[in-house]
Lab assay of single mutants.
Amino acid sequence: NITNLCPFDEVFNATRFASVYAWNRKRISNCVADYSVLYNLAPFFTFKCYGVSPTKLNDLCFTNVYADSFVIRGDEVRQIAPGQTGNIADYNYKLPDDFTGCVIAWNSNKLDSKVSGNYNYLYRLFRKSNLKPFERDISTEIYQAGNKPCNGVAGFNCYFPLRSYSFRPTYGVGHQPYRVVVLSFELLHAPATVCGPKKST
């Protein structure tokens, strides 16, 4: 009989979030998941669920729940959905087409922007091929755009693959930082360890 609440607040209220290319994953298990708490945590810009209804979450049980978190800019949030393409979905964080879970995003301009520009958040701009779903690539190998090998040196047709967002508070919403948490629900042929409040007794 599990009584402890799932530590969603640790994920959502973390002081620092990860850069999207090096997104963070927390496995959540053996706890009571009260998803209604999430609705009250922040004024969400996005709370979209796929393959599951957000209002039914509190009635369900899962084997595992994974919470992935990272920062992107406002106009990239739409890429965090099944079947999307674009720089983020292709080279940084890719959801599977049959994704079961929820994408939660909110504006973090007050936390993640600086007047002089916050350069701490990076994204991958160049990659030889698209990522597979939930693949994480943290390599910093020089990207070869031409025929000549780069031998690890940046220059003509040889690019450092990561680029930094420079978040400034005066930017338009599309270029402001957004914190994203992706909850993916895993149903294996194994005992369910993460249940809503109704199912945990």
Score class of each variant (00 low, 15 high):
residue 30 N to W: 06
residue 168 R to I: 10
residue 21 Y to T: 05
residue 39 Y to C: 11
residue 166 S to N: 14
residue 7 P to D: 14
residue 176 Q to P: 03
residue 36 S to T: 12
residue 59 D to C: 04
residue 126 F to G: 12
residue 58 N to Q: 13
residue 95 L to V: 10
residue 88 I to D: 02
residue 150 C to N: 05
residue 118 N to V: 06
residue 69 S to W: 03
residue 57 L to P: 03
residue 58 N to V: 07
residue 59 D to H: 12
residue 26 K to E: 06
residue 117 G to E: 11
residue 102 C to D: 00
residue 35 Y to S: 08
residue 146 G to D: 10
residue 181 V to S: 00
residue 100 T to D: 02
residue 38 L to Q: 03
residue 180 V to R: 00
residue 38 L to D: 04
residue 143 Y to K: 06
residue 169 P to G: 11
residue 118 N to G: 15
residue 151 N to T: 11
residue 142 I to M: 12
residue 196 G to I: 10
residue 141 E to H: 10
residue 86 G to Y: 03
residue 119 Y to D: 15
residue 168 R to T: 12
residue 27 R to S: 09
residue 186 E to M: 00
residue 69 S to D: 02
residue 38 L to N: 03
residue 48 K to M: 06
residue 38 L to R: 02
residue 42 A to Q: 13
residue 55 T to M: 13
residue 30 N to R: 07
residue 168 R to P: 07
residue 123 Y to L: 04
residue 122 L to P: 02
residue 131 L to S: 03
residue 59 D to Y: 10
residue 138 I to G: 07
residue 132 K to G: 09
residue 146 G to E: 08
residue 1 N to D: 09
residue 162 L to H: 03
residue 55 T to Q: 14
residue 8 F to L: 12
residue 157 N to R: 10
residue 42 A to I: 11
residue 142 I to R: 05
residue 132 K to P: 05
residue 164 S to A: 13
residue 26 K to Y: 06
residue 177 P to I: 03
residue 124 R to W: 03
residue 161 P to Y: 01
residue 179 R to G: 03
residue 201 T to G: 14
residue 32 V to F: 09
residue 116 S to P: 12
residue 163 R to K: 15
residue 135 E to P: 01
residue 45 F to S: 15
residue 35 Y to P: 08
residue 163 R to Y: 08
residue 47 F to Q: 08
residue 68 D to T: 02
residue 155 G to N: 10
residue 148 K to A: 13
residue 110 K to S: 12
residue 5 L to N: 11
residue 48 K to H: 06
residue 42 A to C: 01
residue 36 S to P: 05
residue 47 F to P: 01
residue 151 N to Q: 12
residue 7 P to S: 13
residue 65 V to F: 09
residue 144 Q to T: 09
residue 105 A to T: 10
residue 198 K to Q: 13
residue 99 F to N: 00
residue 17 F to L: 04
residue 54 P to K: 15
residue 25 R to H: 04
residue 62 F to K: 07
residue 155 G to S: 11
residue 79 Q to E: 07
residue 131 L to A: 04
residue 141 E to W: 02
residue 50 Y to W: 14
residue 54 P to C: 07
residue 83 G to P: 01
residue 25 R to T: 02
residue 8 F to D: 03
residue 168 R to A: 12
residue 45 F to H: 15
residue 177 P to C: 02
residue 2 I to K: 13
residue 24 N to M: 05
residue 143 Y to L: 08
residue 53 S to V: 07
residue 65 V to K: 01
residue 31 C to N: 05
residue 55 T to A: 14
residue 85 T to I: 08
residue 190 A to M: 11
residue 4 N to Q: 13
residue 8 F to C: 03
residue 96 P to S: 06
residue 176 Q to M: 07
residue 190 A to C: 10
residue 148 K to Y: 11
residue 93 Y to M: 03
residue 59 D to N: 11
residue 124 R to P: 02
residue 75 D to A: 08
residue 85 T to D: 07
residue 116 S to R: 12
residue 56 K to T: 10
residue 156 F to E: 15
residue 109 N to I: 07
residue 110 K to W: 06
residue 26 K to W: 04
residue 72 I to F: 01
residue 190 A to G: 15
residue 4 N to I: 08
residue 147 N to L: 11
residue 75 D to R: 07
residue 115 V to A: 15
residue 131 L to R: 01
residue 173 V to H: 12
residue 61 C to H: 09
residue 197 P to D: 12
residue 25 R to C: 03
residue 80 I to D: 03
residue 138 I to E: 13
residue 63 T to I: 08
residue 67 A to M: 11
residue 50 Y to Q: 01
residue 170 T to A: 12
residue 49 C to L: 00
residue 88 I to N: 03
residue 73 R to L: 04
residue 149 P to Q: 12
residue 160 F to E: 15
residue 154 A to Q: 14
residue 80 I to P: 02
residue 1 N to F: 03
residue 168 R to L: 12
residue 70 F to T: 01
residue 95 L to C: 01
residue 22 A to E: 12
residue 50 Y to A: 01
residue 158 C to P: 03
residue 169 P to Q: 10
residue 121 Y to D: 04
residue 134 F to E: 07
residue 23 W to Q: 04
residue 102 C to G: 00
residue 179 R to S: 02
